[in-house]
C-alpha cells in the first residue's frame, strides 16, 4: 500500500481509530497496517488525538471473574516459576520432538565438554523468542563462586540486528524489583559475558533473563525501552 498518498492514509487511519469502518474494511486495513509503518504511525497519532475523549468516562469495576478468566487463559499464577515456564509453552509443546530438542539443548549447555560427566548445579536459561515461542538463545553460568560470573551465551539460529540498534541482556530479579542490565551482547553464535562480582549474588538468585532491542549504545534509561525479543526462566540443573 505504498502508493497511497498522505491524504488517503490520514483519512483511513482516522476512520479506523474512530471506528466507523465495516468489518471487512477493518480487516483489510489491519492487513495493510502490518506491513506499513507510515500507516501505523498515522493510526498512533489519531489514537493520541482522540484519547482525551475516553478520559471522562466514569470507571466501572469489572467483576472478579474477568481477571480469573484471564489468568486461566494465560495460565498465570500456577505456583510461581512453573506458571512462568508453562506460559512460555516450552515444555508443554505438544510435539514430542520439540520436547526432545529442548532436553538436548539443556544437556548440551550443562556439558561444556562432551566427555565430562553431567555437571550439576549450573544455572541454565533457555530464552524463547516471544514471537515464535521457540528457543532463541541460551545462557549458563556457575553460581555460588566468589567473584564475578562468566555468562556463556549461545544464539540459536540466524539472528539479525537492525542498524543503530543494540541487543541488551537483562536479569529479572523477581518480585517487584526492576530488571537489571547485564550489558550489551552481539548476535555471535557463542559469546561470553563477564558479570561483575557486585551483581553475582543477584544473578544467581535471578528468576529469569531477557533480551531487548535498544538504541545503539544501549538503553538510555537503565530499563528496557525497546521490544523484548527473548525471555526465559533461570533453572538450576
Amino acid at each position: 500500500m505504498r502508493f497511497i498518498d498522505e491524504t488517503l492514509r490520514e483519512k483511513l487511519a482516522a476512520e479506523y481509530v474512530l471506528g466507523t469502518m465495516s468489518a471487512r474494511a477493518r480487516r483489510r486495513f489491519e492487513f495493510h497496517l502490518r506491513s506499513n509503518p507510515q500507516l501505523r504511525r498515522a493510526v498512533a497519532h489519531w489514537e493520541a488525538r482522540l484519547s482525551p475523549l475516553t478520559e471522562a468516562l466514569p470507571a466501572i469495576e469489572p467483576p472478579a471473574r474477568v481477571w480469573h478468566a484471564i489468568k486461566v487463559r494465560l495460565r498465570l499464577g500456577q505456583t510461581g516459576r512453573a506458571g512462568f515456564w508453562e506460559n512460555l509453552s516450552f515444555w508443554r509443546v505438544s510435539s514430542f520432538a520439540s520436547g526432545l530438542m529442548a532436553l538436548a539443548l539443556v544437556v548440551f549447555i550443562a556439558v561444556p565438554r562432551p566427555e565430562a560427566p553431567v555437571e550439576t548445579g549450573r544455572m541454565v536459561v533457555v530464552m524463547n523468542d516471544l514471537a515464535t515461542r521457540k528457543p532463541a538463545m541460551t545462557a549458563s553460568w556457575e553460581p555460588g563462586q566468589s567473584g564475578g560470573r562468566l555468562l556463556r551465551i549461545r544464539v540459536i539460529g540466524h539472528a539479525e540486528m537492525g542498524p543503530n540498534t543494540a541487543w541488551e541482556l537483562w536479569m529479572l530479579p523477581g518480585g517487584d524489583q526492576k530488571p537489571v542490565s547485564l550489558g550489551l551482547i552481539t548476535t555471535h553464535e557463542t559469546q561470553v559475558v563477564k558479570i561483575p562480582a557486585a551483581l553475582a549474588a543477584r544473578l544467581d538468585a535471578a528468576t529469569g533473563l531477557a533480551m531487548s532491542v535498544e538504541p545503539g549504545g544501549g538503553s538510555p534509561t537503565g530499563l528496557p525501552t525497546g521490544p523484548v525479543l527473548y525471555a526465559g526462566e533461570c533453572i538450576k540443573t
Binding site: 466514569p58 469489572p62 531477557a210 530499563l223
Partner: peptide, 28 residues
C-alpha cells in the same frame, strides 16, 4: 514501567497493571 515488566513476563506486574487500569478500560 508495569508494561515493560509484563514484556519480561512478570506476572505480578501484570496483576498490578490490571488493578490500575481495568475499571477505566472496562468502562470503554
Amino acid at each position: 514501567d508495569l508494561l515493560a515488566r509484563c514484556a519480561l513476563r512478570d506476572q505480578r506486574a501484570f496483576a498490578t497493571l490490571y488493578q490500575f487500569s481495568s475499571a477505566k478500560l472496562f468502562a470503554v
